[in-house]
């Protein structure tokens, strides 16, 4: 988890962190220009038939409390800056799940003028869930794959750097002497 010195104490702490994270990941959902189809399926995973809260997965309102960003849509140019800003507000370590065909490649909207063609053009994505829209079972499987990767510590290295768009500077905390 990015710690440079690995003392036994820190190893124990890491294990506890991973345990907590795997057992109760808090997710935030953002629609970056999708048709709503994926979003109602994500919402359907929270409702009684699928009910992911029994696995500890909770949809959280604020990005500052979230571990996982569940993102849908082909990323319209106007939503792109907002998506980046939400990603930046999330605390490390953070994970991204791209849901739906248009989140993967632009899908049916391929060639439209106002989209970026895929979430992985903007953010480093950990899990892709294909389908137009994917079934709730598919979305749950996507989360399970991510959790499995976390548990075994086999998360791929992030190669992409994300830069905050201009005009969205984060407020710096003042240090009082």
């Amino acid at each position: 988890m990015g710690l440079e010195v690995s003392t036994p104490w820190q190893q124990v702490l890491d294990k506890i962190r991973t345990w907590a994270r795997v057992n109760s990941p808090w997710a935030i959902h953002f629609n970056s220009g999708s048709c709503n189809g994926c979003d109602i399926e994500i919402l359907a995973t929270l409702t009684p038939r699928y009910d992911v809260e029994r696995f500890g997965i909770k949809l959280q309102g604020s990005p500052r409390h979230a571990d996982v960003l569940i993102c849908t849509g082909p990323v319209s140019l106007q939503a792109k800056d907002r998506l980046l800003r939400i990603y930046w507000q999330m605390p490390e370590p953070k994970f991204v799940i791209a849901v739906g065909s248009c989140g993967l490649s632009g899908g049916v909207f391929h060639g439209c003028y106002n989209i970026v063609h895929g979430i992985d053009e903007v953010l480093p994505v950990d899990v892709f869930v294909p389908g137009c829209p994917p079934r709730p079972e598919g979305i749950i499987y996507g989360v399970a794959v991510l959790l499995e990767a976390l548990k075994s510590g086999k998360r791929p290295e992030r190669t992409m750097t994300v830069e905050l768009p201009a005009g969205f500077e984060m407020p710096q905390a003042e240090v009082r002497q």
Binding site: S32, G33, Q78, G111, C112, N114
Partner: peptide, 10 residues
């Protein structure tokens, strides 16, 4: 406008 994708042009 956050969901404007350009469908009519597409």
């Amino acid at each position: 406008g956050y969901v404007h994708r350009g469908i009519e042009k597409g």
